[in-house]
Amino acid sequence: MTEKGSIPAFLARAGWSDALRAPLAGDASARSYERLTRAGETAVLMKAPPGPEIARFLRIGAWLSEAGFSTPQPLARSDEDGLLLLEDFGDALMARRLADHPEEEPALYREITEMLLALHRHAPPEDLARLDGAGLASLLDLVPAHYPCTDQTAAAQLKSAIAETFETLSQEPFVMCLRDFHAENIILLDRPGLARLGLLDFQDAVQAHPAYDLVSALQDARRDVSPSVERAEIAHYAAATGLDLDRFTAIYALLGTQRALRILGIFAKLCRVDGKPHYLAFMPRVWAYIERNLSHPTLGHIAALLRAAYPRPTPDLIKELQADAPSP
Protein backbone atom coordinates (compact mmCIF):
# COMPACT_ATOMS: atom_id res chain seq x y z
CA MET A 1 0.00 0.00 0.00
CA THR A 2 1.11 3.51 -0.67
CA GLU A 3 3.20 5.44 1.85
CA LYS A 4 1.45 8.14 3.85
CA GLY A 5 3.58 10.94 2.46
CA SER A 6 2.66 10.27 -1.14
CA ILE A 7 -1.05 10.95 -0.63
CA PRO A 8 -0.77 14.68 0.23
CA ALA A 9 1.62 15.16 -2.69
CA PHE A 10 -0.73 13.33 -5.04
CA LEU A 11 -3.72 15.38 -3.90
CA ALA A 12 -1.73 18.59 -4.26
CA ARG A 13 -0.85 17.71 -7.85
CA ALA A 14 -4.52 16.88 -8.52
CA GLY A 15 -5.70 20.19 -7.01
CA TRP A 16 -7.46 18.55 -4.07
CA SER A 17 -5.01 19.34 -1.27
CA ASP A 18 -7.60 21.42 0.62
CA ALA A 19 -10.26 18.69 0.58
CA LEU A 20 -11.71 17.10 3.68
CA ARG A 21 -11.04 13.35 3.77
CA ALA A 22 -13.34 10.71 5.23
CA PRO A 23 -12.93 6.91 5.00
CA LEU A 24 -15.42 4.87 2.99
CA ALA A 25 -16.28 1.26 3.63
CA GLY A 26 -13.70 -1.01 2.01
CA ASP A 27 -14.05 -4.49 0.58
CA ALA A 28 -12.34 -7.84 0.90
CA SER A 29 -9.35 -6.71 -1.17
CA ALA A 30 -6.24 -4.76 -0.26
CA ARG A 31 -7.84 -1.59 -1.61
CA SER A 32 -9.22 1.18 0.59
CA TYR A 33 -11.24 4.28 -0.21
CA GLU A 34 -11.80 7.84 1.02
CA ARG A 35 -14.34 10.47 0.04
CA LEU A 36 -12.88 13.92 -0.56
CA THR A 37 -15.02 17.03 -0.16
CA ARG A 38 -14.19 20.59 -1.13
CA ALA A 39 -16.43 23.57 -1.96
CA GLY A 40 -19.46 21.39 -2.57
CA GLU A 41 -17.57 18.97 -4.84
CA THR A 42 -16.73 15.38 -3.99
CA ALA A 43 -14.40 12.72 -5.36
CA VAL A 44 -13.26 9.26 -4.28
CA LEU A 45 -9.64 8.40 -3.54
CA MET A 46 -8.83 4.75 -4.21
CA LYS A 47 -5.69 3.38 -2.59
CA ALA A 48 -4.39 0.13 -4.10
CA PRO A 49 -1.15 -1.82 -3.95
CA PRO A 50 1.32 -0.18 -6.35
CA GLY A 51 1.54 -2.09 -9.61
CA PRO A 52 -0.72 -2.86 -12.55
CA GLU A 53 -4.07 -2.65 -10.72
CA ILE A 54 -4.67 1.05 -11.43
CA ALA A 55 -3.99 0.62 -15.16
CA ARG A 56 -6.23 -2.43 -15.32
CA PHE A 57 -9.07 -0.65 -13.50
CA LEU A 58 -8.86 2.26 -15.93
CA ARG A 59 -8.64 0.05 -19.01
CA ILE A 60 -11.67 -2.06 -18.10
CA GLY A 61 -13.56 1.04 -16.97
CA ALA A 62 -12.88 2.80 -20.27
CA TRP A 63 -14.07 -0.25 -22.24
CA LEU A 64 -17.30 -0.39 -20.23
CA SER A 65 -17.85 3.35 -20.54
CA GLU A 66 -17.38 3.26 -24.31
CA ALA A 67 -19.94 0.44 -24.46
CA GLY A 68 -22.49 2.68 -22.74
CA PHE A 69 -22.21 1.56 -19.11
CA SER A 70 -21.58 3.83 -16.12
CA THR A 71 -18.14 3.59 -14.51
CA PRO A 72 -16.49 6.27 -12.35
CA GLN A 73 -14.37 8.53 -14.51
CA PRO A 74 -10.73 9.12 -13.51
CA LEU A 75 -9.65 12.56 -12.32
CA ALA A 76 -6.00 11.85 -11.49
CA ARG A 77 -3.73 8.82 -11.13
CA SER A 78 -0.38 7.72 -9.76
CA ASP A 79 0.31 4.11 -10.68
CA GLU A 80 3.61 4.00 -8.81
CA ASP A 81 1.87 5.06 -5.58
CA GLY A 82 -1.27 2.98 -6.18
CA LEU A 83 -3.48 6.08 -6.05
CA LEU A 84 -6.47 6.93 -8.19
CA LEU A 85 -8.85 9.88 -7.88
CA LEU A 86 -12.30 9.06 -9.24
CA GLU A 87 -15.68 10.56 -9.93
CA ASP A 88 -17.92 10.08 -6.90
CA PHE A 89 -21.06 8.05 -7.66
CA GLY A 90 -22.52 8.80 -4.22
CA ASP A 91 -24.00 6.47 -1.63
CA ALA A 92 -27.12 5.07 -3.31
CA LEU A 93 -25.98 1.46 -3.13
CA MET A 94 -28.42 -1.00 -4.65
CA ALA A 95 -27.96 -3.19 -1.55
CA ARG A 96 -29.09 -0.31 0.66
CA ARG A 97 -32.09 0.38 -1.58
CA LEU A 98 -33.09 -3.28 -1.41
CA ALA A 99 -32.82 -3.25 2.38
CA ASP A 100 -35.00 -0.14 2.65
CA HIS A 101 -37.45 -1.08 -0.12
CA PRO A 102 -37.65 -4.89 -0.40
CA GLU A 103 -40.73 -4.56 -2.58
CA GLU A 104 -38.44 -3.25 -5.35
CA GLU A 105 -36.38 -6.44 -5.48
CA PRO A 106 -38.01 -7.95 -8.62
CA ALA A 107 -37.67 -4.70 -10.58
CA LEU A 108 -34.08 -4.04 -9.50
CA TYR A 109 -32.90 -7.54 -10.33
CA ARG A 110 -34.64 -7.29 -13.68
CA GLU A 111 -32.50 -4.20 -14.30
CA ILE A 112 -29.43 -6.25 -13.45
CA THR A 113 -30.41 -8.97 -15.90
CA GLU A 114 -31.12 -6.43 -18.62
CA MET A 115 -27.73 -4.83 -18.01
CA LEU A 116 -26.02 -8.21 -18.35
CA LEU A 117 -27.93 -8.96 -21.53
CA ALA A 118 -26.74 -5.64 -22.96
CA LEU A 119 -23.17 -6.22 -21.79
CA HIS A 120 -23.09 -9.69 -23.32
CA ARG A 121 -23.99 -8.33 -26.76
CA HIS A 122 -20.49 -6.82 -26.91
CA ALA A 123 -17.54 -9.02 -27.81
CA PRO A 124 -15.17 -8.95 -24.81
CA PRO A 125 -11.61 -7.68 -25.07
CA GLU A 126 -9.56 -10.53 -26.50
CA ASP A 127 -6.70 -10.12 -24.04
CA LEU A 128 -8.84 -10.90 -20.98
CA ALA A 129 -8.14 -14.22 -19.29
CA ARG A 130 -10.58 -17.01 -20.19
CA LEU A 131 -12.37 -18.71 -17.32
CA ASP A 132 -12.80 -22.11 -18.96
CA GLY A 133 -13.07 -25.46 -17.21
CA ALA A 134 -9.39 -25.53 -16.25
CA GLY A 135 -9.61 -21.92 -15.06
CA LEU A 136 -12.63 -22.64 -12.89
CA ALA A 137 -10.83 -25.59 -11.34
CA SER A 138 -7.63 -23.63 -10.66
CA LEU A 139 -9.60 -20.99 -8.76
CA LEU A 140 -10.45 -23.69 -6.22
CA ASP A 141 -6.80 -24.24 -5.24
CA LEU A 142 -7.11 -21.85 -2.31
CA VAL A 143 -10.06 -23.70 -0.74
CA PRO A 144 -8.25 -26.65 0.91
CA ALA A 145 -5.41 -24.30 1.84
CA HIS A 146 -7.70 -22.29 4.13
CA TYR A 147 -11.06 -24.05 4.59
CA PRO A 148 -11.07 -27.40 6.43
CA CYS A 149 -10.74 -30.31 3.99
CA THR A 150 -11.64 -33.83 5.13
CA ASP A 151 -10.52 -35.68 2.00
CA GLN A 152 -7.76 -34.26 -0.20
CA THR A 153 -8.30 -36.92 -2.86
CA ALA A 154 -11.98 -36.06 -3.15
CA ALA A 155 -11.06 -32.35 -3.31
CA ALA A 156 -8.72 -33.01 -6.25
CA GLN A 157 -11.32 -35.17 -8.00
CA LEU A 158 -13.90 -32.45 -7.41
CA LYS A 159 -11.79 -29.92 -9.30
CA SER A 160 -11.45 -32.28 -12.24
CA ALA A 161 -15.18 -33.06 -12.23
CA ILE A 162 -16.09 -29.35 -12.26
CA ALA A 163 -13.73 -28.71 -15.18
CA GLU A 164 -15.00 -31.70 -17.18
CA THR A 165 -18.67 -30.95 -16.51
CA PHE A 166 -18.24 -27.35 -17.54
CA GLU A 167 -16.63 -28.31 -20.84
CA THR A 168 -19.46 -30.78 -21.47
CA LEU A 169 -22.24 -28.28 -20.74
CA SER A 170 -20.78 -25.03 -22.09
CA GLN A 171 -21.68 -24.18 -25.70
CA GLU A 172 -22.04 -20.38 -25.61
CA PRO A 173 -19.40 -17.84 -26.68
CA PHE A 174 -17.63 -16.32 -23.71
CA VAL A 175 -18.60 -12.79 -22.66
CA MET A 176 -17.20 -10.02 -20.47
CA CYS A 177 -17.77 -10.98 -16.83
CA LEU A 178 -17.10 -8.52 -14.02
CA ARG A 179 -16.75 -11.37 -11.46
CA ASP A 180 -17.47 -9.51 -8.22
CA PHE A 181 -20.87 -8.38 -9.47
CA HIS A 182 -23.52 -7.94 -6.79
CA ALA A 183 -25.75 -5.36 -5.10
CA GLU A 184 -22.91 -3.97 -2.93
CA ASN A 185 -20.99 -3.03 -6.09
CA ILE A 186 -23.80 -1.22 -7.89
CA ILE A 187 -24.73 2.42 -7.30
CA LEU A 188 -28.15 3.66 -8.44
CA LEU A 189 -27.54 6.85 -10.43
CA ASP A 190 -29.86 9.54 -11.74
CA ARG A 191 -29.20 8.50 -15.33
CA PRO A 192 -31.47 7.04 -18.02
CA GLY A 193 -31.75 3.41 -19.00
CA LEU A 194 -28.97 0.97 -18.22
CA ALA A 195 -26.65 3.87 -17.36
CA ARG A 196 -28.59 4.08 -14.07
CA LEU A 197 -26.49 1.21 -12.74
CA GLY A 198 -23.13 2.60 -11.65
CA LEU A 199 -20.55 -0.18 -11.74
CA LEU A 200 -17.76 -0.60 -9.20
CA ASP A 201 -14.99 -3.16 -8.67
CA PHE A 202 -14.62 -4.46 -12.21
CA GLN A 203 -10.84 -4.58 -12.60
CA ASP A 204 -10.77 -8.38 -12.28
CA ALA A 205 -12.99 -8.86 -15.36
CA VAL A 206 -12.50 -12.01 -17.42
CA GLN A 207 -14.01 -13.80 -20.37
CA ALA A 208 -16.42 -16.38 -19.01
CA HIS A 209 -19.71 -18.13 -19.57
CA PRO A 210 -22.75 -15.79 -19.69
CA ALA A 211 -24.21 -17.40 -16.55
CA TYR A 212 -21.22 -16.42 -14.38
CA ASP A 213 -22.21 -12.86 -13.46
CA LEU A 214 -25.88 -13.83 -13.23
CA VAL A 215 -24.91 -16.31 -10.51
CA SER A 216 -22.75 -13.64 -8.86
CA ALA A 217 -25.71 -11.25 -8.62
CA LEU A 218 -28.45 -13.72 -7.73
CA GLN A 219 -26.47 -15.86 -5.28
CA ASP A 220 -25.13 -12.94 -3.29
CA ALA A 221 -22.97 -13.94 -0.32
CA ARG A 222 -23.96 -10.79 1.56
CA ARG A 223 -27.76 -10.78 1.18
CA ASP A 224 -30.62 -13.12 0.44
CA VAL A 225 -32.23 -12.91 -2.97
CA SER A 226 -35.76 -14.30 -3.11
CA PRO A 227 -35.78 -17.74 -4.79
CA SER A 228 -38.71 -16.58 -6.92
CA VAL A 229 -36.65 -13.64 -8.19
CA GLU A 230 -33.69 -15.92 -8.89
CA ARG A 231 -35.85 -18.35 -10.88
CA ALA A 232 -37.49 -15.49 -12.79
CA GLU A 233 -34.18 -13.93 -13.83
CA ILE A 234 -32.63 -17.24 -14.88
CA ALA A 235 -35.67 -17.89 -17.06
CA HIS A 236 -35.66 -14.32 -18.38
CA TYR A 237 -32.01 -14.48 -19.39
CA ALA A 238 -32.44 -17.85 -21.11
CA ALA A 239 -35.56 -16.69 -22.96
CA ALA A 240 -33.97 -13.41 -24.06
CA THR A 241 -30.94 -15.21 -25.51
CA GLY A 242 -32.73 -18.25 -26.90
CA LEU A 243 -30.76 -20.64 -24.69
CA ASP A 244 -32.14 -24.01 -23.69
CA LEU A 245 -33.45 -23.44 -20.15
CA ASP A 246 -32.61 -26.93 -18.87
CA ARG A 247 -28.98 -26.76 -19.98
CA PHE A 248 -28.64 -23.13 -18.88
CA THR A 249 -29.99 -24.04 -15.44
CA ALA A 250 -27.50 -26.89 -15.19
CA ILE A 251 -24.49 -24.72 -16.01
CA TYR A 252 -25.83 -21.99 -13.70
CA ALA A 253 -25.91 -24.55 -10.87
CA LEU A 254 -22.39 -25.75 -11.73
CA LEU A 255 -20.97 -22.23 -11.75
CA GLY A 256 -22.89 -21.44 -8.56
CA THR A 257 -21.27 -24.42 -6.87
CA GLN A 258 -17.79 -23.44 -8.01
CA ARG A 259 -18.23 -19.81 -7.00
CA ALA A 260 -19.71 -20.59 -3.59
CA LEU A 261 -16.98 -23.08 -2.75
CA ARG A 262 -14.29 -20.58 -3.73
CA ILE A 263 -16.01 -17.92 -1.62
CA LEU A 264 -15.83 -20.21 1.43
CA GLY A 265 -12.09 -20.47 0.84
CA ILE A 266 -11.77 -16.70 0.43
CA PHE A 267 -13.73 -15.98 3.61
CA ALA A 268 -11.64 -18.50 5.56
CA LYS A 269 -8.46 -16.88 4.24
CA LEU A 270 -9.72 -13.40 5.11
CA CYS A 271 -10.18 -14.59 8.68
CA ARG A 272 -7.11 -16.76 9.17
CA VAL A 273 -4.59 -14.67 7.21
CA ASP A 274 -5.95 -11.14 7.06
CA GLY A 275 -7.64 -10.95 10.46
CA LYS A 276 -11.14 -10.21 9.07
CA PRO A 277 -13.36 -12.73 10.89
CA HIS A 278 -16.63 -10.88 10.17
CA TYR A 279 -16.79 -12.54 6.74
CA LEU A 280 -17.39 -15.88 8.47
CA ALA A 281 -20.95 -14.77 9.26
CA PHE A 282 -21.78 -15.15 5.56
CA MET A 283 -20.66 -18.78 5.38
CA PRO A 284 -24.03 -20.42 6.23
CA ARG A 285 -25.71 -18.50 3.42
CA VAL A 286 -22.96 -19.49 0.98
CA TRP A 287 -23.26 -23.14 1.99
CA ALA A 288 -27.02 -22.95 1.44
CA TYR A 289 -26.27 -21.89 -2.15
CA ILE A 290 -24.03 -24.93 -2.52
CA GLU A 291 -26.81 -27.21 -1.30
CA ARG A 292 -29.33 -25.56 -3.63
CA ASN A 293 -27.03 -25.91 -6.62
CA LEU A 294 -26.09 -29.50 -5.83
CA SER A 295 -29.75 -30.48 -5.90
CA HIS A 296 -29.62 -30.19 -9.70
CA PRO A 297 -29.76 -33.74 -11.13
CA THR A 298 -26.82 -33.07 -13.46
CA LEU A 299 -24.48 -32.51 -10.52
CA GLY A 300 -24.94 -35.76 -8.58
CA HIS A 301 -21.31 -36.85 -8.98
CA ILE A 302 -20.07 -33.39 -8.00
CA ALA A 303 -22.36 -33.39 -4.95
CA ALA A 304 -20.86 -36.65 -3.70
CA LEU A 305 -17.28 -35.40 -4.11
CA LEU A 306 -17.92 -32.03 -2.52
CA ARG A 307 -19.62 -33.51 0.53
CA ALA A 308 -16.76 -35.96 0.93
CA ALA A 309 -14.14 -33.23 0.65
CA TYR A 310 -15.59 -30.35 2.67
CA PRO A 311 -17.71 -30.12 5.83
CA ARG A 312 -20.66 -27.82 6.34
CA PRO A 313 -19.69 -24.55 8.11
CA THR A 314 -21.37 -25.40 11.40
CA PRO A 315 -21.22 -22.99 14.35
CA ASP A 316 -18.41 -25.10 15.84
CA LEU A 317 -16.39 -25.01 12.60
CA ILE A 318 -16.85 -21.25 12.35
CA LYS A 319 -15.63 -20.88 15.94
CA GLU A 320 -12.52 -22.89 15.05
CA LEU A 321 -11.83 -20.58 12.12
CA GLN A 322 -12.35 -17.52 14.34
CA ALA A 323 -9.84 -18.92 16.80
CA ASP A 324 -7.24 -18.99 14.01
CA ALA A 325 -7.59 -15.28 13.28
CA PRO A 326 -4.37 -13.36 13.99
CA SER A 327 -4.42 -10.98 16.91
CA PRO A 328 -5.02 -7.29 16.01
Rank of each mutant, 00 (worst) to 15 (best):
L264S: 09
I7V: 15
G256A: 06
P49I: 01
T71I: 08
L131I: 08
P315S: 05
S17K: 13
H236N: 13
S138K: 14
E111K: 14
A323V: 06
R262K: 15
R223N: 06
P284E: 04
A43V: 07
A48F: 03
L83K: 05
P74E: 08
D204N: 10
L264R: 11
S295Q: 12
E320K: 14
F174W: 10
E80F: 00
V143W: 07
D151M: 02
M176A: 01
E320V: 11
Q203D: 11
A134Q: 11
D132I: 00
A22L: 09
H236I: 00
G26I: 06
L85W: 04
L36A: 05
V229T: 12
L200R: 06
P144H: 08
S138A: 15
P227H: 09
E87A: 00
S228N: 14
F166I: 00
L83H: 04
V175F: 05
V44F: 04
H182K: 10
P124K: 02
T150R: 15
P210S: 08
E53I: 08
A39Y: 05
G90D: 05
Y33L: 04
H122T: 02
A268W: 01
F282P: 00
D246H: 14
E164I: 00
A9H: 13
M176G: 00
A28F: 03
A183E: 09
A235H: 09
R196S: 12
R247Y: 07
I60D: 06
P144W: 03
L86E: 06
A303Y: 03
E66A: 15
M46A: 15
E34D: 14
S70T: 11
E41A: 11
P311H: 11
A260G: 03
A238H: 01
L58W: 10
T241I: 07
L36R: 04
